[in-house]
Design a protein around this nucleic acid. Structure first.
Lengths: 216, 216
DNA sequence: GTCTATATCTTGATAGAC
DNA sequence: GTCTATCAAGATATAGAC
């Protein structure tokens, strides 16, 4: 284990309600903090056990293998994000600009609220086998599809002006994803300020016009 | 070592001229491919040695420790990016819009040309001690400063309209950084197409006005 | 610079008692 | 569910011959 901190974040947090109770949940919390900081291969099962306050042998009463702990975290992270994106879209109304802003705000807020989870879900996924990663990757594809559909609808109706929706989706997604890496309590912004600013950037990327502007 | 591929990229490449000759360079190439695919802790010195065609003991004739190989790669990656950004700015002229476009193009192209190097330099940096990471982090700060100065100059002269230059810099940087993660020969775009599209997005993010528009 | 051989430690995981 | 004890394998790194 090494010294430099990988993340500015302090609070280790997992989404409520979706986390298993008791020791099983404590294992998840401990593994999340360690995987985010040192990576999956940089963390030993003894490290996790020590943080929970049990021995490494006791871990196996809760998870069959180390990789299964990671798989649970990766899936949880993708579920939380997808749920938030869906909720955002449902309450966003019908204007393409409003929908895009809602998606970006939800994306940013999810990464601001659970930076550790987002980091582990995204950059430790390679430590899983294809079968273990599959459920999370399926969710990721669905989330990507939500954004893509909003962009396509926006360009089709003339609300957006984008040469290539796929590239726009990648760009918009990138600014939200990276929030997990830099945002934290050390930054001079609230999570809402970042969400608003990045939603505005997304609208600019697609050259969104308001209804009033279109009437001119 | 696991199965799923972390990157779509195929060609393992390091910037010419900056790479040491002979076996020392081969070690760097081998470690780059493995670190990018499996992570620093997911790669053993035996893996690296096998790929070069020597034994693990022979590695120590070239690098004092495994972490020193990573440190060399991380520094190389940051040097290559910073050099490209500087070159881009020098030949960009004096218009803020042109300077921003040049920076973004260089940023995107660097990540498209050396995705493995960018991945290792960015997401395996946490495996280094603070002293080992320091030179690379210093270069990163300088690169960040280049972008920030262009944004500040643009807003100060009225060429850009941005509420917060720091947030704009993060957003613009994010779309370039992520290129290493998704762009590859499997994508239906050339590197130039992505660079042009993302430069346009950056100009939209800062609401860049052309000289002619300002005269109205 | 490369090798064989090895020291030393840590790893993920299991056996079996309580 | 937790423990102690342990296994077998893999890790980084070194010693010393050629």
């Amino acid at each position: 284990m090494n010294e430099p901190r990988r993340l500015a974040a302090v609070a280790v947090e997992l989404p409520e309600g979706m986390t298993p109770p008791g020791t099983r949940g404590q294992v998840l919390h401990a593994a999340l903090a360690l995987f985010a900081e040192y990576g999956f291969h940089g963390t030993s099962i003894r490290d996790i056990a020590r943080r929970v306050g049990i021995t490494s042998a006791s871990l196996y009463a809760h998870y069959p293998a180390k990789a299964d702990i990671l798989a649970a975290l990766v899936l949880l992270g993708h579920q939380e994000l997808h749920t938030r994106l869906q909720r955002a879209l449902v309450t966003a109304g019908t204007s393409p600009g409003g929908q895009l802003a809602a998606l970006v705000r939800a994306h940013v807020l999810a990464h601001a609220d659970y930076p550790l989870l987002a980091t582990v879900a995204n950059s430790e996924l390679h430590a899983l086998t294809a079968e273990q990663a599959a459920p999370a990757l399926a969710l990721r594809e669905q989330s990507r599809h939500l954004l893509l559909e909003v962009l396509r609808h926006g360009t089709a109706t003339g609300a957006f002006t984008v040469a290539d929706e796929l590239l726009a989706a990648v760009a918009v997604g990138s600014i939200g994803l990276r929030v997990a890496a830099w945002f934290g309590p050390d930054q001079p912004y609230t999570r809402e300020e970042v969400a608003d600013a990045f939603a505005e950037f997304a609208l600019r990327i697609v050259d969104a016009t308001t209804a009033r502007e279109r009437q001119r």
